[in-house]
Amino acid sequence: MQCERFLENIPLYLEDRLDGAERAEWRRHFGSCAACRDTAMAHDPSLLFLRAEAPPPAEREVERHLAAALSRARAERIERRVRSGRVRRWAAAAVIVLGCGLAGLTFLGGGVDPGEVSSGTPAIARTERPAVEVEMDGGVTVYQFAEMDDATTTVAFVVNPEMRL
């Protein structure tokens, strides 16, 4: 770029009215021609900062921070898994409590017909006894209060092994 053209384009550069190629060329000329640079900076001293230059970081430093970032990412992944495991345990506990409550109301004299629990809840076909009964670790018993071919199936978890439905 000729100096004359550069000087003409100073206001256009400052107003961001140069296209990409012209802008790049203007900046190159700014970097290489001290006299034009001074003239441009007399228009706007903040153009001084086009000359700012930071040394590139050492490769070793980049590698050190990259390794640290990957290590942080792994640690956060593990932490998230642990946290989500805790959430699952709380959700299981909530289901257990809910199931106990429902079972208690239905079979231990609560007098609530499961089909009438809520208008939004699908009716559960009552059976004489739970269709399935599974003993799990930790004294958890799983009951199924519906026939196997019934799509609307409910399950209760009973934590107290002494408690039988």
Binding site: A34, R37, D38, M41, L48, F49, R51, A52, E53, A54, P55
Partner: peptide, 17 residues
Amino acid sequence: QETPAQRLEASEVERVL
């Protein structure tokens, strides 16, 4: 012989910035 702005090293411009 340069003006102060010309003499200023790029790293110093960086510091001012």
